[in-house]
């Protein structure tokens, strides 16, 4: 029973995946803009900079002169094999670019989650034990304030106060925690506060 259920669900997955991949593929085609211009570094305002020949050569290299279904099959084939292609602007593999930056996102998210939890758990516990007291309302109020505060604005205010005025934390930059945990925390502190107070954890 369970075996056939799993098989059925897996079979259902196939058309879903095909449809999703088609949608993703077509989405890029529907958005206005021209990959050839991007690749040649042509600003949309620099009108007519590309010669016909150069355009055709690049178009051919990108395979954009082929029928759209061939383009799709090509693209799908490469995705299945884990090849996400090259970035148009930097001509480097997409995978490389994502994983170059992904660790920073991960570490920051973890730090922010930590900040969020040290605020949220005690606040939640207090609010639960002392329901309908001032403490409860304060915790609720604080949580609402955190969620409602636009984080881009809150972040700028923290930079103005702690970087520009007090000079306690750097306003920009990133250091990997494995390179220097102290520097990492210095850089991650303000962003983590912003993200940590922004999550509706309590």
């Amino acid at each position: 029973m369970l075996g056939s259920y799993v098989v059925r669900r897996l079979l259902q997955l196939i058309p879903v995946l095909i449809l999703v991949s088609l949608a993703v593929f077509l989405l890029v085609r529907v958005i206005p803009g021209d990959p050839v211009s991007v690749m040649l570094g042509i600003d949309p305002d620099e009108r007519g900079r590309i010669s016909e020949e150069q355009y055709r050569v690049v178009q051919h290299q990108l395979g954009l002169d082929r029928p759209i279904y061939v383009q799709y099959l090509n693209w799908a084939d490469k995705i299945i094999h884990g090849d996400f292609g090259l970035s148009l602007a930097s001509r480097r593999p997409i995978f490389e670019i994502i994983f170059e930056r992904y660790p920073a996102t991960l570490y920051l998210t973890a730090t922010a989650l930590f900040v969020g939890l040290i605020i949220a758990i005690p606040a939640g516990v207090i609010a639960a034990i002392r329901q309908n007291t001032r403490l409860d309302y304060a915790a609720m109020g604080f949580a609402l304030w955190g969620v409602a505060m636009p984080d881009f604005w809150f972040a700028l205010m923290l930079i103005v106060l702690f970087s520009v005025k007090l000079g306690w934390f750097p306003s920009i930059g990133y250091t990997s925690p494995f390179e220097s945990p102290v520097l990492f925390l210095q850089h991650a502190f303000l962003p983590a506060i912003v993200m940590g107070t922004n999550w509706p954890l309590p």
């Binding site: 930079i159 970087s163 306003s171 920009i172 930059g173």
Partner: peptide
């Protein structure tokens, strides 16, 4: 501009 004022650049 904040980074300039903070002395980071």
């Amino acid at each position: 501009f904040s980074a300039l004022q903070a002395g980071d650049v």
